[in-house]
Simulated scan of single mutants.
Amino acid sequence: MTPFPWLPRRRLRAPLDPDLLQRRARLPAPAPFAAAPAARQRLVVLDLETSGLDLHRDQVLSIGAVAIEDGAVDFAQQFEATLRRDGQREPGASVLIHGLAPSALAAGVAPADGLLAFMEFLGDSPLLAFHAGFDRHMLARALKDSLDLRLAHPFLDVAELAPLLCPEAGLERGALDDWVARFGLQVQQRHHASADALVTGELALILFHRARRQGLDDLAGLADACARRRRRQQAPSF
């Protein structure tokens, strides 16, 4: 998610057509984390590729997602979309990381259509992501800009969950690549939204198994444990 300086500034959202308004109105209300094992709740693992890391100026370029259901990654439930972004200048070296050249972005789906299709795929399911705070902010801003829609789905951060459940790994601030290497996972194509979502889902399943062994098989409890750990880390030391 390195900068794409050749992208134009965000434009004001155009009025939504009646079909998009009707589809938006049919979206279900989000479900909270259940006080139940992960195997009893559908979860959606999300990864975004963006034009950079600026939370206020950069844009979502592509969305990749996969569902976890019945305690396993459901390969029949996958989502991928590249959003149409019209570049005006030649791309920089960041294309070598994402592979999202101006031609690919210009051929993408309209942002409102792509984002609404993702929300329909998501349904009422909670979300998982690696470094979820960034994805949550970028997705929320994109939904507001393109659909005038507020994101209210709960997120569980796999980057927080991993060191909580595997402190012996010594990866307190480990990147996704670090955890992929730790558990010997295979990534089809790094910095590709769908492939990163899939490997994040596989990592999450390993962590859920660890959680069961530690008596933390409750999604709501896992979210609370991550929040307590975050507060301890942010508390001032004297």
Rank of each mutant, 00 (worst) to 15 (best):
Q234L: 15
L165S: 00
C226A: 12
A211G: 03
H209V: 10
I97A: 06
Q186L: 14
D196L: 04
I206G: 03
L53G: 12
D47G: 01
R84F: 08
G174H: 04
R230G: 15
F155Y: 11
A65R: 10
R26A: 11
A152W: 08
L203S: 05
A93G: 11
F118I: 02
F130R: 09
G71L: 04
A132Q: 05
V109S: 10
S237K: 12
E202S: 08
L53I: 14
D74Y: 03
P37Q: 06
A117L: 09
A132Y: 07
F118Q: 07
R210D: 07
G64W: 11
R228F: 08
I63P: 09
A107C: 10
F130S: 11
S94I: 08
G99C: 13
A29W: 05
W179K: 02
A235N: 13
T200I: 03
D58G: 13
V199N: 00
A181E: 12
R23F: 08
R213E: 04
D196E: 13
S62G: 14
P8W: 11
F33E: 00
D17L: 06
G215I: 06
E120Y: 04
E80N: 13
R150N: 05
R42D: 14
A235H: 15
E172L: 09
L147N: 03
A93N: 01
